[in-house]
Simulated assay, not measured.
Amino acid sequence: MILNTYKPKFELGQIVVTPAVLKKVPKIEIEFCLTRHAQGNWGDLSEEDQEVNEEALRNGDKILSAYRSSAGIRFWIITEADRSATTILLPEDY
C-alpha cells in the first residue's frame, strides 16, 4: 500500500470504505487519495474548508477531504476527531 512511503500528518485509525465507493472507484485511486488526505492535500475543497482542516490538525477536530475519481465520481474521506477511524464514502452515503 502507498501509505508506507511517507510520514502522514495525522493518524488515520481504522480505515473503512463504503460498498458504494468500492463499487464505483478503483482501489488504486482510493489508495492514492487516502495518501493525499494523510499528507494534508485536501483535494477539491474551498480555501475556507482547507483552512478548517488546517485548524483541525492543531485542535484535534474532524478532517474532511473531497476528491473525484478519473470517472468523475465524487467521494469524501473523513477522519474522526479522535483519529480512531477514517471513512471513505460517497456524499450520498453521508
Rank of each mutant, 00 (worst) to 15 (best):
N59R: 08
A56V: 00
E47N: 11
A20C: 11
L57F: 06
R68Y: 14
K9Q: 14
Q50L: 09
L34W: 09
L90F: 12
K62T: 05
T87S: 08
R74N: 05
K24F: 11
S84F: 11
D61K: 04
F32D: 11
R68M: 00
F32W: 11
G72L: 09
N4H: 14
S65W: 00
E92N: 03
T79H: 01
K23M: 14
V25M: 13
T18M: 05
T5K: 15
I2G: 05
G60M: 14
N59K: 05
V52H: 05
V16G: 01
G13Y: 01
I88N: 04
P8N: 09
W42P: 00
K27L: 06
N41P: 08
N4F: 05
L34R: 07
W42A: 01
I73D: 09
A85R: 08
T86I: 04
T5L: 04
M1N: 08
I78C: 09
W42L: 10
T86V: 05
T35V: 13
T35L: 04
E47L: 07
C33H: 14
G43C: 09
Y94I: 03
E47S: 14
D61A: 08
S46M: 12
V25T: 15
L89W: 01
K24E: 15
F75V: 02
A20N: 15
C33S: 11
D49E: 12
F75T: 04
N53W: 04
T87E: 02
D49G: 09
G40F: 11
I63Y: 05
E11Q: 15
P8G: 01
E48S: 10
R74L: 10
E51P: 05
P19M: 11
D44M: 10
L45W: 01
I73G: 01
K24H: 13
G40P: 03
A81H: 14
E51Q: 12
C33L: 03
A20S: 14
K23L: 14
L89G: 00
A56C: 12
L90C: 11
D93A: 11
I88D: 03
Y94W: 07
T86M: 07
S69D: 06
R83K: 04
E92R: 12
L89D: 00
D61S: 04
V21D: 08
T18G: 03
S69K: 06
L34D: 08
M1T: 13
S46A: 09
L12D: 12
I15Y: 13
Y6C: 11
E80F: 14
A71E: 15
R36L: 15
R36K: 14
E80V: 01
L45H: 03
P26T: 12
Q39P: 04
P26H: 13
N41V: 10
K7W: 15
N59A: 09
K9S: 06
E29L: 15
G72P: 08
V25Q: 13
I2E: 13
Y6T: 04
N59H: 12
N41G: 07
K23Q: 15
T79D: 00
E47G: 12
D93T: 05
V52K: 13
A38W: 07
A81C: 04
T18W: 01
A71W: 07
S46Q: 09
A66E: 02
T79N: 00
L89V: 05
G60I: 13
R83V: 03
Y67A: 07
G72M: 01
E48C: 10
N59I: 07
W42Q: 05
T35H: 04
I77C: 01
E47Q: 13
E48V: 08
